[in-house]
Amino acid sequence: MIRGTSILDAARELNVRAAIDIPKDAYQKVEQLSRQETNRLSSYVLGKILENYDAATKDRVAMCADTGLPRYYVKIGNDAVIEGGMVQLEKALRQATADTTVSIPLRPNRVHPFTRKDNNNNVGMHAPTVDYSFEPDVDWVDITVTHKGGLFGGDYRMLFPADGIPGLKRFFLDSLAEFLRRGMACQPATIGVGVGGTKDMCVRLAKEAACLRIVGDRNPDPEIAKLEEELAEIGTSAGFGPMGFQGNSAVLDVHIEVAYAHTGGMPVGIQQFCYAQRRKTVRIFPDNSIEYREDPRWFTPYYRRETIE
């Protein structure tokens, strides 16, 4: 049985690692962009971004002081048994958020939207967000945490089959125009594109595509994979570097996820995950042993299934 204390301990450590240590895939991609970038301002900034990754890890401080909104993605094995059930798991995640807000520290970003009241612990109504998915034939629980800012970089639009891929490309360019100028999206960023489903589903998939797939990962559908590469090339050749300076270094990767849509619609969500990619995953086994890793492996064949089973 997976104990509540195991979840609490693991979730605390998960927040520490996410806030401080940049995942290798993102680090290596920024390094590559830095080597290739020829614009003086963009090159200067990319060099400092790498310096900041190193400083955060060395000094054990948050790589970005906007520690975003801590958010959990929990994948539960169908055979997993959690002491105290799901209520205990949710309580542990809320407790870990409050504890690490003080201990790391994270910035207490969560406030009431009207009164702006701050509990100073990143916990409140519907905060932190916890999303769930399930996995057959396994008995572990995976918990991924992301710390992502949320003011700039995302957009939603209802497109139609008549708009098609050209329409998707136009909307993609619009989102670059909106959020790469002055570097509002804190690029270089991983751009997630969610297509289909409902309004809320495509936005959610876009965020998961941006935050829960590592740089270099391709969608298993070859047509979608091709479109990912095409959009990445468009984003790279758009002429932007970090902070909206000239360059070819605004994009870490583009990830596309799809959901079955209304027969008349093609809703599209776009989300950008900044270069301070705060994400870490832990797997908790029934014997309460734990394994940390950097690839969330959120998009499993089961999660993307098309069939009834």
């Binding site: 900041n52 400083a55 955060a56 790589m63 906007d66 570097g183 970090p242 902070m243 900044c274």
Partner: peptide, 13 residues
């Protein structure tokens, strides 16, 4: 302007 915008550790120093 601050640079990069996610430079918490460098500015923290």
């Amino acid at each position: 302007t601050t640079i990069g915008y996610g430079m918490g550790a460098v500015y923290g120093r």
